[in-house]
């Protein structure tokens, strides 16, 4: 299966801008399906970005983050060609990891 994480990291020499899009239902546990049964909560709790062995950005998410979440941030201290490691875990113990080269 293709990775659930799509990420673009671009450096202008000083600052690296990161945009990430993750495929995940982000169910709140409050919505009913067509049969009137509650869809159990299923959402990403932690999303982490690491670069050169250091956490550069950590997100703690609740159910109010939209389906197929998107996040954008920037950080210093990386250069073109460095690897960015992205990983998430959800409330059901699911997880995914991917790496991206900074362009």
């Amino acid at each position: 299966m293709a990775s659930s994480i799509r990420v673009r990291a671009t450096s202008n020499g000083d600052i690296t801008e990161v945009q990430a899009l993750i495929q995940h239902p982000m169910d709140t546990g409050l919505v009913k399906d067509s049969k009137g049964e509650l869809i159990p909560a299923h959402f990403i709790q932690e999303l982490k970005f690491e670069c050169n062995g250091k956490d550069v950005f950590v997100a703690n998410w609740g159910t109010a983050v939209s389906k197929d979440p998107y996040v954008k941030f920037s950080f210093k201290g990386a250069k073109k060609g460095d690897e960015l490691k992205i990983s998430w875990t959800d409330n059901k113990g699911g997880s995914d990891t991917t790496t991206a080269k900074i362009a």
């Binding site: 600052i15 950590v58 109010a64 983050v65 979440p69 941030f73 920037s74 950080f75």
Partner: peptide, 20 residues
């Protein structure tokens, strides 16, 4: 609480995301 982001040293204090 919708989302909480940790900003380590060297990360720019700016975040964009989408919420319900």
């Amino acid at each position: 609480l919708a989302a909480s982001y940790k900003i380590p040293d060297g990360t720019i204090p700016a975040v964009a995301n989408r919420l319900k």
